[in-house]
Amino acid sequence: MAEKNIYFCSDAHLGSHYHKDPLAAEIKLVTFLKSIEENAQEIFFVGDMFDYWFEYKDVVPRGFVRFLGQCASMSDKGIKLHFFTGNHDCWMSDYFEREFGAIIHHKSFIFENNGYKFRISHGDEEYTGYSMRLKWMYRLFNSKVARFFYAALHPRWTVGLAYWLSYNSRKRGLKKQTEGRIPHALCNDYFDIENEWLVRKTKEFILKDPSIDFYIYGHRHLMLDLALKEQKRCIILGDWITYDSYAQWDGKTLCLCSIHDFE
Rank of each mutant, 00 (worst) to 15 (best):
D21I: 02
L224C: 07
I27L: 15
N39I: 03
W249V: 10
D21N: 15
L161R: 08
C187T: 10
Y7E: 09
Q177E: 13
G173C: 08
Y190Q: 13
Y116M: 13
F191I: 13
D89T: 07
L14E: 05
I259K: 04
E38Q: 15
A227S: 14
A146T: 09
G86H: 08
P210A: 09
P183F: 01
I36T: 06
A24L: 10
S73N: 11
K203P: 03
G123D: 10
K57L: 11
Y246Q: 06
H19P: 05
Y217W: 09
D244M: 04
F100Y: 15
I27M: 14
A2K: 13
G63I: 12
A12D: 00
K80V: 13
L222S: 06
K229T: 13
M223F: 02
I120R: 09
K80T: 14
Y56I: 00
L140A: 07
L140I: 06
A185W: 02
Y150Q: 02
W197Y: 15
W91K: 12
I193D: 00
E204H: 10
D21E: 13
G115C: 07
A146F: 14
G86Q: 06
K20D: 13
Q70T: 11
S245F: 05
G251H: 11
V60A: 08
V65K: 14
V46K: 04
D244Y: 15
S35M: 02
F148I: 00
L14Q: 03
Y246G: 06
E26G: 04
E55N: 04
I216P: 03
C255M: 11
K57N: 10
V59M: 14
W157T: 12
I6W: 01
W157Q: 08
